[in-house]
């Protein structure tokens, strides 16, 4: 499938991925994240079930400390 991830076009061999699978494939290891699929916030409790499909727009925001 082809998706837009953080404003970049990316191609994955899988036809769909859960959020948890996407994080693993991309090696996104940050603990503190905000994830949106097509403008909708994905709750942390839904990372195992929320599906990403062809054409989806996904944002993964890494939160780092400092302020």
């Amino acid at each position: 499938m082809k998706i837009t991830l953080n404003n970049n076009q990316e191609i994955f061999k899988q036809e769909s991925l859960t959020v948890r699978e996407l994080l693993k494939v991309k090696n996104f290891t940050f603990k503190m994240l905000v994830i949106k699929i097509n403008g909708r916030l994905v709750n942390k409790t839904d990372y195992e079930t929320a599906q990403i499909h062809e054409g989806d727009e996904v944002h993964v925001l890494h939160l780092i400390s400092g302020g």
Binding site: K31, M32, V34, L41, N43, K44, L63, S65
Partner: peptide
């Protein structure tokens, strides 16, 4: 906020409960 846990909590809550209000976060400085 200072800590990433608090940033995450605020962003999640505002996007869920006050989605029409623009939220400006500070990240990495």
């Amino acid at each position: 906020f200072d800590r990433s846990e608090e940033k995450e909590m605020l962003i999640e809550t505002v996007l869920t409960e006050l989605p029409s209000i623009p939220l400006i976060v500070g990240l990495g400085m």
